[in-house]
Write a protein that binds this DNA or RNA. Sequence first.
DNA 1: TCTTGCATACTACCATACAAGTCAAGAGAG
DNA 2: CTCTCTTGACTTGTATGGTAGTATGCAAGA
Lengths: 229, 229
Amino acid sequence: MQLAGLDAASLKTVRVSVVDQLYATLRGAIIDNDLSPGARISETEIAQHYGVSRQPVREAFIKLANEGLLEIRPQRGTFVAKISRPAVMDARFVREAVEADIVKLLAQAPEPALIADLRDQLVRQRQIIGGSARDFMEADEAFHHTLAAGAGKENAWRVIVEMKAQMDRVRFLSSMHFSVARLVDQHTQLVDAIAAGDAVGAEQAIRFHLRGILQDLPIIEQEHPEYFR
Amino acid sequence: MQLAGLDAASLKTVRVSVVDQLYATLRGAIIDNDLSPGARISETEIAQHYGVSRQPVREAFIKLANEGLLEIRPQRGTFVAKISRPAVMDARFVREAVEADIVKLLAQAPEPALIADLRDQLVRQRQIIGGSARDFMEADEAFHHTLAAGAGKENAWRVIVEMKAQMDRVRFLSSMHFSVARLVDQHTQLVDAIAAGDAVGAEQAIRFHLRGILQDLPIIEQEHPEYFR
DNA sequence: TCTTGCATACTACCATACAAGTCAAGAGAG
DNA sequence: CTCTCTTGACTTGTATGGTAGTATGCAAGA
C-alpha cells in the first residue's frame, strides 16, 4: 500500500516499502520537533493516520528506537525519546572525532576538484544568510557529506548521520539563536586550512565548529526542561 | 514494579523478548562465522528452527540488517552480508578516531583507580596467552569498554560496539594468525602512556594497536575470497 | 485521609493469514 | 538444439487477530 502525499517520486520504477516511507517521515518529524520529546505515539494511531496496518508502523518504530529517537516501553507505550544531555554530548564527541580525522586526511592531500566543490558550496551558503534555518541545515549537511565523501569514507558518513540526528534535534530548537554567518565563516576557515594543506589548522577548525553548534544547549534546556530527560 | 534488593539477574521471571534473544543469538553466530558470509537464511527456516513465528524473526533480521550484518533483498531472500573491505576499513577508521580521542581524554587526567583497574586486566590478559582466541576477545572487549567508560563515554561505546562487529568478523577468521602476546604488549604500552599523562603517546599507541588488528585482512581475503563482496 | 482490590481500557508482543514479487525448471514452438 | 513463455514454488511485505502486561479510575474498607 502507498502512503498518501509521500509518493511524488515513487511513480518511477523504484518501489519504496511502507516501512521506509514511515521511517523517513517520522524521523523528519522528530528531528523537526513536529513530534516533541516525550510525546506519546501509538502503533494504532499512526497506522490509522496513514491508512496502513500496524505491522509496518511497528517496524519503523523499531528502527527509530535503535537510533535513540523513540523509546519503546513494552506493554506501556511508545514515546518520542526525551533529549538526553549525555547522549547528545557523546554524539558530538563521536562526530567530532570522526570528522577531525576526515579533515586531517583531506588536508594531507588536498584535491583541487574537491576544494572547488567546497568553495562553490560556501558561496551558496552565504546566499542563504538571512534565509530559513531549514535551508541552511540542508546546505550544512551537504557540506559535511562532501567532506566525508571526499575522503572516501562514505560508510563512515552513515555513523555521522546518526550522530547528527541527535544534535539536529537540539539545533532545531535553537534555530532562533544561531548565526548562520558565523557558521559559514567557520566552514570557510576549514576549507582554507584544507586547501593550504594545514592538517593541524583543519582539525582545530572542525573541532571548534562542531563544539560551537551545541553551545546553546544549556539555554535550550532551561527554556524547554520538559523536553529533557 | 521491581522489588528492592532483587535485581534482574536474580529473577528467573525476567522476560526477555523473543526478538532480543534471536538478535543476540544470530549476531553471535554471524560474528563467530557459524553463519558464513553469503549464506542464505530465511525467516521461515529460522522461525521453525526455534519454534517461534516469522514475525519476531523478521524483526531481529531488520536489526541485524541495520548493523550491516544481514542483507535483506525484498522478495528474494535474506543473506549473511558478505564482508566488504571498504566497510571494514571505514569501521576501523571510525573506531580509531573515537578511541583515539577517548585515550587522549584519559591521559589528560589519569585517574589512579582506572589505571589500577586496567593494569589488573593486563595481568589477566597475560594469563590468557596460549589460551583460546575467544577468551582473549572477551577480555579485549572488556578492556576497550573500560577505556570508554573511564572517559565517561558510555554512549560512544555503543558506536564502537557496532564498528567492532564488522572488525571481529574478520578477526575471527584470522584467529590462527594473530599473536595474543603482541596485542597485550600494545595494551600495556597504552596504559603506560595514559598513566604517565602522555596524551600523544597514548594516541599513537591506540592507533597503532587498532591498525594492526586488520593487518591480516589481505591474507584473509586471499584465503576466503568467497566471503568477500 | 489513605490504602487495597478490581474492573476496564489501553499497550506492545507474537501468531497467523494473505498479497505480491522473484526465479528457475520445464513445456512447447521454432 | 535454442529460445520463449508459463507455471509454481519459493521469498519477503503487509494485514489482522489474539494474548499478556501495565496504568488508571473507582469503590470498599481501614
